[in-house]
Design a protein around this nucleic acid. Structure first.
Lengths: 163, 163
DNA sequence: ACAGGATCGTCCGAGTCCAGATGATCTGAA
DNA sequence: TTCAGATCATCTGGACTCGGACGATCCTGT
C-alpha cells in the first residue's frame, strides 16, 4: 500500500461472503479481518478501542525499552497514528511515557501494572477467539500455520531484489 | 473494526520489524500487509491504484452477474468505498456498469476485454509475489495454508453464538 | 391499486489516516 | 567549539473511510 485498508465490509454482521478467489493475499486479508472483528469487540468491552491498543500493550509487555518509532514498526502502525494510540493508553494510565536519560529526544513508553492487568484480561479473549477460529485443527497444523505466517510476515525485502 | 486498518507502517520500505507476538491475529495482519506491499506496487505499475482494483477484476472475471452489494461483500470492501473503485475502473474502461433488466435498482458491473487483459497481466505479478512469499514451502504445506486461511475467513458468524 | 417496508446505488459529514514539515536534540567532522 | 546533517516525537493539511441518510425501485399483503 502503500497502504490501504481492505478492511471489513460489514464490521458487525460481517459477511465477507464465504469464499472468493483462492488467492493468498485475499485470504490473508479476509482471515485477518475476521479475527479482528472478534478482537475489536473484545477490546471495546474492556475499555480499549482496537486490537491495536492491545497489540501495543502486548509488545510493551516484555519490559524491554523501546522507542516510539521502534514500536510503530513492530505493531505495523504508522508512527503518527501510534501517537494517538499511546495518548489514549496513557490517558487510561495503562502506559507511561518515560524520558530516556541518555537521549532527551526519545520517549520510552512503559506498561503500568494496570496495563498488565488489562493485557492479561484481553489475552483470554484472544485465546478464545483463536480457539474458535481454529476449532478442529490439530496442534501440528496450527503450528505449521503460525510458522508459515511468521515466515511471510518476516520477508523484509525481496521487492528490492531485482533493483 | 469493526473496522480499522492496521495497515503497514512504512509502505515502501516497509519494515514491520520481523517478528512480534506469535499471535494469530497479528501474524495474519503482518503477512497480509507484506503481500499487499508487493501487489500494490504491481498495481500502480500497470495503471491501477490498489490490489483492491485487481481483486474486483478477479471476482468479475468469472462472468457471473453480481450486484455491487454482493461484490462489496466478496472483496471485503465497504459498499460506499467500492463505488470509487468501480468509478475508477469504469473510467479506465476496464468494467462497465450495465443495467439489470429485471430490477432497475441494481447495476451489474461487468468486465471488459481490456479489463481481462489487465487482469491477466496482473495475475502473473501475483503469482510471482506468492512464489516469493512461499519460496521453499512444499506443495502440501501450501495447500494446507490456503485451506486453513479459507476456513478462518469463512467463519461467518460465531460471534453471535452466545447472544 | 395501493401503502408500508425492504433493498438497491449513491451522497454527505464526521472521523481517521498518513506524507511531509517542524522543533528539539544528538552526532560527527572541521 | 561550532555547525551541518541525522533522528526523535509531534503537528498539520489534504485524502481516504464509513455510518447513516437519501431517492428510486421492488415486493408483499390487503
Amino acid at each position: 500500500m502503500g497502504t490501504h485498508s481492505m478492511r471489513a465490509a460489514e464490521p458487525g454482521t460481517a459477511e465477507c461472503a464465504g469464499f472468493g478467489p483462492a488467492d493468498l493475499t485475499f485470504l490473508l486479508h479476509a482471515a485477518a479481518d475476521r479475527m479482528t472483528v472478534d478482537l475489536d469487540q473484545a477490546a471495546v468491552e474492556m475499555g480499549l478501542k482496537d486490537v491495536r491498543d492491545w497489540l501495543v500493550l502486548a509488545v510493551l509487555g516484555d519490559g524491554q525499552n523501546r522507542t516510539q518509532l521502534e514500536l510503530s514498526k513492530m505493531v505495523c502502525v504508522d508512527k503518527t497514528t501510534l501517537i494517538s494510540v499511546l495518548d489514549r493508553l496513557e490517558h487510561h494510565e495503562l502506559i507511561v511515557r518515560t524520558a530516556d536519560p541518555s537521549d532527551r529526544r526519545v520517549r520510552i513508553p512503559q506498561i503500568t501494572p494496570e496495563g498488565r492487568r488489562v493485557y492479561a484480561k484481553f489475552a483470554t479473549a484472544r485465546d478464545a477467539a483463536e480457539a474458535r477460529a481454529l476449532d478442529g485443527v490439530d496442534r501440528d497444523d496450527r503450528a505449521l500455520l503460525l510458522n508459515l505466517l511468521a515466515r511471510i510476515a518476516a520477508r523484509q525485502d525481496a521487492a528490492v531484489a531485482t533493483a
